[in-house]
Design a protein around this nucleic acid. Structure first.
Lengths: 168, 168
DNA sequence: TTGTTGATTCAGTAATATTTGAAAGATCAG
DNA sequence: CTGATCTTTCAAATATTACTGAATCAACAA
């Protein structure tokens, strides 16, 4: 397989994976492109290489910055902005975990806590099942939460090392 | 908060969470409904309670069966089919992990392995960065994979117990 | 101040994903 | 076989999400 073909496949696969996980396909593709680019790229580079419009490129680049996955680079004497991606996969994983936790898990846990406090007419089967289900999911969510917090603070090698002690 | 309000909020939240994670909103809502229903429900029950069409209800119920999250129940003497959800949150988590691994992670790992074999013109910076990036992501993906495999085989209490030893 | 370059915004458009509902298919009792 | 009941399918309609491109804004040099 040639490099060019491989690059395209990688970008496409990253985009598909992103959209399967609720992340804008193009944003994931822009990220993929920057991940495999040795040098920082301009908005125009991104537009050309992915055949997308200026507005689209601009928006997704800024979203990626919001996710903490890429950064702007200013070059002395130049007006153009350059963008480059952190290529450390452990950082990427942690960053995505951190953002999704904040945007999605935390709000759900908040709601589940509220729903746990529903007033307890436990004579009805409905109420009983509801409370049990909410309580169980809440417990699971909190366990996931703690695990993520551990991961967010951890060094990669320590984290996987610990994980694989579990394997044996 | 009243039970009825709480039920609606739960269903809505589950649906939203689903769609944020690339799962059809309605499918997640049907799942939520069955999770908090003490008795198995018919297609008609689901249609009514979620105000969706017969076709929609039917498709999502079958998809949920495909995900291993709900089951059909046949009642002697009755033609109608009843559906009920496994309410064990650990089973649910494992089932979802298992399916997504199969549908998404496994194919990605397969591709990454192929992309790793690209022929090695390491003089170009492009090729060098590409290979390094693919290799690193591949490593991460395989670690995630192993972790999931451990989880899939594990008992809930053992799994979280082990996880929290890491916390300390 | 004006012209140039580049970034940003957003209304309109396009692409995707989901839902509907009616028709067709199954299953069964009589 | 026929009618009744329930399930499944799928083309068309609808809803949601993403993208484009031209206008606007911002920064700077001359």
């Amino acid at each position: 397989m040639e490099l060019e073909e491989a690059r395209l496949k990688f970008i496409e696969a990253w985009g598909r994976l992103g959209s399967e996980w609720g992340i804008n396909r193009t944003m994931a593709q822009v990220h993929a492109l920057l991940l495999i680019s040795p040098e920082a790229l301009t908005t125009e580079d991104v537009m050309e290489q992915l055949s997308i419009s200026r507005g689209n490129a601009n928006m997704n680049l800024r979203d990626l910055i919001g996710w903490g996955l890429i950064e702007k680079q200013h070059r002395p004497g130049e007006r153009k902005e350059y963008f480059f991606a952190d290529k450390d996969t452990w950082n990427i994983a942690r960053q995505v975990a951190k953002e999704r936790k904040k945007r999605e898990l935390d709000p759900v846990i908040k709601l589940l806590n509220e729903l746990s406090e529903i007033k307890g007419d436990d004579k009805s089967k409905e109420a009983k099942v509801f409370k049990t289900t909410v309580k169980d999911i809440n417990k699971l969510a909190k366990n996931v939460n703690k695990t993520l917090e551990t991961m967010l603070k951890a060094e990669e090698s320590w984290f996987w090392g610990s994980m694989f002690k579990l394997l044996k």
